[in-house]
Amino acid sequence: MLPGMGEHTEAAQKEETEARAKRAPVNWRRTREQACGFLASLVRWTGLAFAAILVLHVIFVIGSANTANGIVSFVSSWAGGLSLGFRDLFTPSDEKLRVLVNFGIAAIFWLIVSGLLARILRRIGGAGA
């Protein structure tokens, strides 16, 4: 080791220790609240987006939108997966009524489930309802 090298290392370690002591301590409760709040918002917005896709699908079907259109086909493909078991829950003879009822119920389902999950996440985080 070079002369004076040990002194430099000791001084650097001492400065680092002092810098750590000056830092504010981490508030883990606040960090948990923020993380859970972020996740709750993410869940809520995701549920809202899913419901919006389902509502758009209903509007496109009732309005007899062009199925060859890229937007309509994109929404239709997503709506099929997001409808879960509600797609054929009711089977009225009118196609438009069937889509309105079944996909409408699926949209309401996503809003309710995402709202409940968001509320649970906020309570876990301690941020309240």
Rank of each mutant, 00 (worst) to 15 (best):
G104W: 02
V26S: 05
W45H: 12
I59Q: 06
N69H: 12
A40H: 03
F103S: 05
G81H: 09
L56I: 02
D88T: 13
V43A: 13
R32S: 12
W78K: 12
G115F: 08
S114I: 01
S93D: 11
G63T: 08
N69K: 02
R23H: 08
T9N: 10
R20G: 07
T17I: 11
Q34V: 14
F86Y: 04
E33V: 04
G126A: 10
F74L: 15
A19P: 00
L2E: 15
N27F: 06
I59T: 11
I62M: 12
A118T: 02
L54C: 02
R44Y: 13
E33I: 06
I105Q: 01
A118Y: 03
P25R: 12
N69A: 12
T67E: 13
R123V: 14
G125T: 08
G37Y: 09
R98K: 15
R44Q: 15
A127W: 11
R20K: 14
R98A: 14
F74P: 04
T67W: 06
S64V: 07
A106S: 01
R122I: 06
A51G: 02
I62Q: 11
L89M: 12
G63W: 07
V101G: 03
V26G: 02
K96V: 01
Q13T: 11
T31M: 15
A79Q: 05
S73E: 07
V101C: 07
A68R: 13
N66A: 08
I53A: 10
A118E: 09
A49H: 05
S83A: 15
W45A: 13
S77P: 02
R123I: 13
